[in-house]
Design a binder for these strands. Sequence first.
DNA 1: TAGATTGTTAATCGATTAACAATC
DNA 2: TAGATTGTTAATCGATTAACAATC
Lengths: 212, 212
Amino acid sequence: MNKELVLRLLKYKRLLQQLKSLGFIKVFSNNLGDAIGVSPALVRKDFSVLSLSGNKRGGYHIDTLVERLNEVLGKNEKQDVVLVGCGKIGTALMQYREFERQGIRIVAGFDRDPQNVENPTKTPVFTDRQLEEYVAKHDIRIAVVAVPEESAADVAERLQQAGLKGILNFAPVELKSSDQCIINNVNIGLELENLFFMVKYAQEQPAAVAPE
Amino acid sequence: MNKELVLRLLKYKRLLQQLKSLGFIKVFSNNLGDAIGVSPALVRKDFSVLSLSGNKRGGYHIDTLVERLNEVLGKNEKQDVVLVGCGKIGTALMQYREFERQGIRIVAGFDRDPQNVENPTKTPVFTDRQLEEYVAKHDIRIAVVAVPEESAADVAERLQQAGLKGILNFAPVELKSSDQCIINNVNIGLELENLFFMVKYAQEQPAAVAPE
DNA sequence: TAGATTGTTAATCGATTAACAATC
DNA sequence: TAGATTGTTAATCGATTAACAATC
């Protein structure tokens, strides 16, 4: 179960739910492959790993797929997270509609200086000194980190000490996963620099580029 | 030149600049490897691809590395971008300090409804009807997209029509690169769902997890 | 010199794909 | 039946790593 595979499964799931809501009943591996940008063979392989099978002629039954994907990916589990760092990015995330749509809820924010946080939402924002207590009390497993670069490493350390199991990190530092805690880094600046380079390079050497 | 390699090169560059500013003169492949989380062999391989060489005993000279990396990655090129969609995430990005630190500048924002944009910055926000004109006039190559899911596909289409070469997409839809235009998707919800799964899975099957 | 590190080759590894028999 | 699609195996591909000779 590597990250890429899981991301594909999540994409299948989203897509299938959409198809279902549009009234589709079945789907072929090449439809799915086209839609998420992989080969039909890989789609079939992924499904076979999940012991999902289709019909030799009629493709896959969407309901069955969705059901099994929910089973594997864990549908209605509690998905509560805390947000550490309520600056511009942080508060934007507090209002991010997509989270609730995916069943994810930011239950509390923490900031070094909660007074200064412009918080138009109902989510409470506490001083970061209460972090450990809150996390323990509410059995929080996952945190979103949106603090400045300087504080990121310390915050991550504290979160791991507090027993958190997963961190989604927006600070522009590459934090490393440990056995106790899995960290996903979203490095916006890096993505954009990468894009600049890919574009420049594609212009110089039209043939040699392999996006994604 | 695949994406992973470019990301590593960007990370080397950042790290080396930091080391340099701390007064370091030289560095070994295993220092760099540890720092960015890859094997020393890969570091040496990457450098050898760039025809960078070190000293059999004394490691690599930081100045030489930085110089060559700037050469390859294109140091002081103009890095102007436009922002399409000035909602919560969009305006947060307008104020994102890390961009200017990396020499990236958001020169203009566009929104369907510029009146409603809370814009505490000097960056002008225009109506999206002016997008094509602005982009042509200022020779903009790259756009950051932070519009709602529903509009993302249309906006991407318009941007490609307008001749943009690269898009960094924050809308929760997977947009696909074409020959004309490279698209990097940053799907925050997906990253977080992924994290939830990885954490759950790691708990269930401690041995079988491979983060990142 | 002895020890350490580079540079590079060959081996490994894992993921993806081609291809095709099975079969609806 | 003829045609299309699955399910799976073996081949391919590319990236990473192990290992070691070269050498400072």
